[in-house]
Design a protein around this nucleic acid. Structure first.
Lengths: 319, 319
DNA sequence: GTGAAAGCGCTAACAT
DNA sequence: ATGTTAGCGCTTTCAC
């Protein structure tokens, strides 16, 4: 049952049926009624794929993310969804596991018109590739792209990193351990952490106190243990997530060791529970902005400031 | 630039080009080379929407969920994704906010061939509607559908609820507060909780100790306060999530009150941190199963047992 | 207002 | 092996 069948059955043409379906002008009441009657009678609905093909638009936005374990990604995705829904767009989840080949595959699907636009919450492919593929559709990334001509929505983190390290310094810590998702060399965010650290402490982060590839609570726990086993006793840990800081804390607790000063990130529930200092990177807002950029046809960058959050040790979590 | 252009430029027909693109048999090496040369030269890629239209298949699975705040939904979605990716299917996120009209809209999109199948992680529309719409595509729900003829992947919760309440009884608790997402009358899960409670304690749950509409940490906190303000002092709280139990706990801590025995659900990070007893409903597994059912063309139900988890108060979170 | 016809771009059955 | 042709189902221009 397609639009031509309805046309025949109603005695009008496919064009007129199309007009009725899409509530366009230039269709007589007679025609409208006749067509609607047949549509109702045969319980007809138009085919969305055919429509998309004809229009050259799918209203689908691909969202590439390496995994969903980290709140960074769920936060951004929620932000994107909250903006996409009222605009009549759908989100297609594209898991990449940091694999550049898989990401290239998604970029090619953009070329093939499977998505109107694609948002990279993070990416393994080069920015050059991303820039090149803009010829085939709107592309948005979620970090500062520097001088690359590409749309981006991201958090301006440096001020909050500086604030966090300055506060730490004021607590007179000396041996700062740093837990990261990815190495300084691989990640702009990690580089920024390093830069802020150097600016505040006047020297580069100690390699022995550095742990990378840390993403979950368990990995935080293990990283703390690894420090201990290597006879490293930091008086502070700067973690890339409250969950991770919580994991580290648990290691010290389980072994009756003094707990170093902890700073988390992402303002997660675990941080609220433990009242950890944290840095909120406003991912939800980033998601919303990323979606808006995805619909624009000019490239543009927007940023939001991260916030360093210190909590009282004794106040209520709500009013 | 479409398949016909490539056909002309290569001196072969569109059919042959199609064969080359899709690596089918019955194409000579000459033809293959010639076509590939032109494809490369003009940087041609086929259009996915046209292909989908022609094949009548999109490889897109719609996943309806009310919101993403609760780990139930993120857990299921991760499970679905983990199964969908290797199978070459994509997940389209369909937020419903428990709104039946929005859900009907998604069901209609299934009719319109926008998705090959649709998974309801939860639904506001009636099971009758869901059953009826199966005529237009594969539909899977994520709870026990009873006698309705529809595919479903869900957790068998009753045994774990009984185990939890029995354990609680052994700790000789008397006044048990229950926190739920939705009222007994609205939710099958809530009814099951009630049933298990009655079976173990021999009487219905006290209304004064019941709180519904509780979904987040903050709401757990507030619910605990509401109990206190109403001069209710339960010696145990059975919460619908570890986060929620954690929120309640925080209220008692903040006010220097004795903390009731707590049982959470979902085996969340907060529960691990606080070493709460919890019930793991295996959502990831449910997601995987739901995806598999979505691809089948017969209706079938599969279930997984929930697990009641008691933790030592002093052991390590990992080996 | 209405309809014919030309897209949108690919696939597949059938001939040769 | 290869081409022809008829779909897949909707939109839109242009002529009347």
């Amino acid at each position: 049952m397609n639009i031509h069948d309805i046309a025949k059955l109603s005695g009008y043409s496919a064009a007129t049926v199309s007009r009725v379906i899409n509530c366009r002008k230039y269709v007589s009441d007679d025609a409208k009624l006749a067509v609607q009657k047949v549509i109702k009678e045969y319980d007809y609905v138009p085919n969305d794929v055919a429509r998309d093909l004809s229009k050259g638009k799918t209203h689908n936005i691909g969202v590439v993310m390496p995994h969903t374990k980290h709140p960074y990604y769920t936060g951004i995705i929620n932000g994107i969804m909250d903006a996409a829904f009222p605009a009549g767009y759908r989100i297609v989840l594209l898991p990449s596991m940091y694999n550049a080949d898989i990401e290239m595959n998604y970029l090619n699907r953009l070329r093939r018109k499977a998505y109107d636009a694609i948002i990279f919450t993070s990416h393994g492919v080069s920015l050059d590739d991303l820039v090149n593929y803009q010829a085939y559709g709107s592309i948005v990334c979620c970090h500062d792209p520097g001088n690359y001509k590409i749309s981006a929505a991201y958090t301006e983190r440096i001020a909050s990193y500086l604030a966090a390290f300055k506060w730490a310094k004021k607590q007179s810590v000396h041996d700062v351990a740093i837990f990261l998702s990815r190495d300084f060399t691989l990640s702009a965010t990690s580089q920024l952490t390093r830069k802020a650290f150097i600016e505040v402490f006047g020297h580069i982060p100690t390699n022995d106190l550095l742990r990378t590839g840390v993403v979950t609570y368990e990995e935080g726990y293990k990283s703390a243990r690894s420090l201990y086993e290597n006879k490293k006793y930091p008086d502070m840990i700067f973690a890339n997530g409250d969950d991770i800081a919580a994991g580290a804390r648990q290691f010290y607790l389980d072994n009756n060791l003094p707990i170093p000063l902890l700073i988390g990130q992402e303002n997660q529930l675990s941080g609220q529970l433990l009242r950890l200092p944290t840095i909120d990177h406003n991912f939800h807002e980033i998601g919303k902005l990323a979606f808006e950029l995805a619909l624009e046809n000019k490239t543009r960058q927007v940023s939001v400031e991260s916030k360093f959050i210190l909590r009282d040790q004794k106040s209520c979590p709500d009013n």
